[in-house]
Design a protein around this nucleic acid. Structure first.
Length: 103
DNA sequence: GCAATGACTGGTA
DNA sequence: TTACCAGCCATTG
């Protein structure tokens, strides 16, 4: 198994901590960690996202990762995530589904 | 060290 | 909604 970096593990830890029905944007995760940037989080998800609920991580607009929007939609419906559009372009209601973290 | 790239963000048209 | 631009951060050649 490939060993992951501390930063990647930290990103996966936050994503794994997101409760069902809630989502975070790439920028929110980076800001929550206080390190790196939205692009770094996205890169980690593309490389290690297979071991984490990547569908709970979306763009600031609420649109899921490209190429996986249909897959993410299935999870949103299964977890009861508040959606603004149940069909492409799939968009999550960030106003309610945005997870501020362990407040 | 520089240029290019990427599962990004916000603003403007 | 879509398209384009400028900014941001880390990795790679």
């Amino acid at each position: 198994m490939d060993e992951i970096d501390d930063y990647s593990a930290r990103v996966l830890d936050v994503v794994d901590a997101i409760p069902p029905g809630q989502v975070m944007s790439y920028g929110d995760v980076a800001e929550y960690l206080g390190a790196g940037g939205p692009r770094q989080v996205g890169h980690v998800m593309s490389h290690y996202g297979g071991a984490a609920p990547w569908w709970r991580v979306t763009h600031a607009d609420g649109t899921p990762a490209p190429g996986h929007d249909a897959r993410a939609l299935a999870h949103y419906l299964a977890e009861g995530t508040p959606l603004r559009s149940a069909q492409p372009p799939v968009r999550v209601d960030m106003r309610k589904a945005r997870w501020p973290g362990t407040s």
